[in-house]
Design a protein around this nucleic acid. Structure first.
Lengths: 341, 341
DNA sequence: AATCCTATTGTAATCGTTTTCAACATCTTT
DNA sequence: AAAGATGTTGAAAACGATTACAATAGGATT
């Protein structure tokens, strides 16, 4: 039904090869013919079939984007960045929501392969045994963003999770806290593992004990944050401060804290990984590490496009440093000064 | 590079036609051959090229999704629904963020056409003169969601904006408010126009005057909500209550209200269109109309898939009724009782 | 046993591009 | 003027699947 290159060729009185050459801005076409072809294209409203092009070129101008939770504002911002960059380069974006589910992730990766996408940006559900392997095998470029894939050689864009978590927890310690709870994502994914490590290192660096029952982990969802925080708050030796390792976990934590009528920072101090734009509306404002989400997505997509152009160079790793933003959620803690000296 | 149907055929000792028949579960294939083919597929890890299929079938198994703001949780939830339904039916989703920009929307529509997508779900930037026309012309099914396209015959899924806005404003009036400001999206899009209409009708129904300077409109973004609300609050005859017509406008309004140290509902009452999941964290909880966002996306996608299967039947319009949720942001207003009797 | 069906399989055309190769024309160089 | 170089164009072969059609074989019916 739609008009095709043959129609344009007929209208302009040339062959389809010539039309193709004009459209691709190839040399060796006379001005006269070029003019006629462009006129025909205009008149017929011709639009090349990207499907036919993809088949011929053995590669679609599409990039796949696989994330774990489209409803998480962190990823939303990342998606936005990927989309912006792709749009500028005339690429379309396949959006896939893996839901932290490895089966779904695998299916989507098969889909990417079947669609012959030019490349994939992924925030992998887990660090090892990742189905991305299948893409690498058939030479589809992959960029890991936010989370790593340990056993594959791919371009990677992450933040310094260990350092940032370390800074957050050290801040609590410097405020006098000695009994600090952690609500973090599970260690299957990079973010959970590394942020936990930052927490542990900060305690160790200050000679504090690592108490396993103060570290709670689970899927990075609000309901889980609510649940885990509740468990910590109801402990006989309730922590005086909390570190939450993910924005949704933070929302859940806040809900649990509010529900118990506890005040921040008087009853419990709170530092959080990642920021949410509406957080300035709640009091007190939270001390957080602000992730450069848009930057993350933009960098990843640019890396991917580079790799698509030229796959020769060795994989790159970009580590961004998220700033610590100190606000009012963790004032100086008095009582603990008795405990240590 | 990837294995193709010919490779499978050779391996199984049959022709590619037979392989195709097996994979499509067509009749007239002997059990013996079917077994051999499936074994070959398994051994080679064959995956059909969806690109070649699309070319041959003159239609991709892809649906296009064009929304105006991926960072708005309303759309995020909608995207999620579309993605879920598409996934179940083996469709991939092209995500396009139009940014309320008609030029970008047009470019994306051209892209959809060039990619020969099976259909498009769109929340159109404007009601009239919509570029979707171009899709209809080439028989690509379109479903409008959240917002209408007035001059095209397409399936449509929206909420009862007029009714819901009417209910919200009536609630304020019943609480004694007589001087009510409105911060709404501009009337180019359905949501802005219809919600404004609901506001106007509610005032009229109660014999209240429509004061143009109390109605502020603009793009549905937080910064705009902040700006417009600020203007209303700084008026010499500041309204005693506010109606915000969109979730992001609400966030901006809250910021403006907080910044001026005003209390809700004592200094100013507030009712809002659409809900945000973190809103339960701020006090007081807002009286809102809760949009069934997931339902919206799900219904739209199902309608689209139906239309793709069978384009014969006349366009449908589904109108969902969002519930009014009364909370604490608009207590009874005393002073106004003097004004009217 | 001749005829007709039906079940199974293969051949080849098709979808809409791009690109290689060859053909021809024109221009330069000797 | 012959030879070679260069510029412009078209014919045809890919890309990888589906499918209309033909071909063959075997079984049933007369």
């Amino acid at each position: 039904m739609p008009v095709k290159i043959q129609d344009v060729a007929r209208r302009a009185g040339v062959s389809s090869a010539t039309v193709s050459r004009v459209l691709a801005n190839k040399p060796h076409v006379s001005e006269e013919v070029r003019r006629r072809v462009l006129a025909a294209v205009e008149e017929l409203g011709y639009q090349p079939s990207r499907v036919a092009r993809s088949l011929r070129a053995q590669r679609s101008k599409i990039i796949g984007l696989i994330i774990s939770d489209i409803q998480n504002p962190f990823f939303t911002s990342l998606v936005r960045a990927v989309e912006d960059v792709a749009y500028k380069h005339q690429y379309a974006v396949f959006l896939c929501n893996s839901d932290e589910d490895i089966e779904k992730e695998t299916l989507y990766i098969d889909l990417m392969r079947a669609e012959r996408v030019a490349g994939v940006v992924i925030s992998p559900t887990r660090e090892t045994d990742n189905p991305c392997q299948k893409l690498i095998e058939v030479n589809v470029p992959v960029v890991a963003v936010d989370r790593r894939i340990l056993d594959l050689e791919v371009d990677t864009v992450v933040v310094d999770n260990v350092g940032a978590a370390f800074n957050l927890v050290r801040h609590l310690i410097n405020d006098g806290h000695r009994h600090i709870g952690a609500v973090i994502g599970s260690s299957i994914a990079t973010t959970g593992r590394e942020r936990r490590e930052g927490y542990v290192r900060a305690l160790e660096a200050h000679g504090l004990p690592i108490l396993p029952h103060l570290i709670r982990t689970g899927l990075p969802k609000e309901a889980v944050g609510y649940q885990l925080t509740g468990e910590l708050l109801d402990l006989p030796d309730r922590p005086t401060a909390l570190f939450t390792g993910n924005n949704l976990l933070t929302v859940g934590a806040l809900r649990a804290i509010h529900e118990r009528g506890l005040r921040i920072p008087d009853d419990i101090a709170l530092v959080a990984f990642d920021e949410l734009d509406w957080m300035s509306l709640i009091k007190p404002n939270l001390t957080v590490v602000a992730q450069p989400t848009y930057e993350l997505g933009k960098t990843a997509t640019n890396l991917l496009l580079n790799r698509i152009e030229n796959s020769a160079h060795p994989p790159q790793e970009v580590v961004l440093n998220p700033p610590l933003i100190i606000r009012q959620s963790c004032a100086h803690h008095e009582s603990s000064s008795d405990e240590r000296r």
